[in-house]
């Protein structure tokens, strides 16, 4: 089964509660930016938050650019500004 797993952290997690965190990889979905675009109609508040300039995206725990090519089995995480320490 070809799947991509999505993770939303911090306040993005609150906004993504009704998003399916495991989506089928159909080969059409090529980048995190395309994934965000796909969520736009049903989850406009989440997408607005994802597009804030400080939000970073990682693929398999490595921070990447929004046009990074996706592969089957990838774990994509959306990371708002961090506040540890």
């Amino acid at each position: 089964m070809s799947m991509i797993n999505l993770l939303f952290f911090g306040r993005l997690g609150d906004l993504a509660q009704d998003v399916n965190h495991s989506i089928t990889y159909d080969g059409q979905l090529r980048t995190p930016e395309q994934l965000v675009h796909q969520l736009e109609v049903a989850h406009s508040k989440l997408v607005a938050a994802l597009r804030e300039p400080q939000v970073l995206v990682s693929v398999n725990k490595i921070i990447v650019k929004w046009d990074h090519p996706l592969c089957d089995g990838d774990e994509i995480a959306f990371l708002p500004p961090v506040t540890g320490g």
Binding site: G10, D14, L79, P80, P81, V82, G84, G85
Partner: peptide
């Protein structure tokens, strides 16, 4: 290490202020 821990490491704080939940901003 402390300066970068606060700005680079993937931690997120949420506070409960007398019942009001809020994610902390950097």
């Amino acid at each position: 290490v402390m300066d970068y821990l606060k700005t680079k490491a993937t931690f997120w704080k949420q506070v409960d202020l007398n019942g009001q939940q809020q994610w902390i901003q950097p």
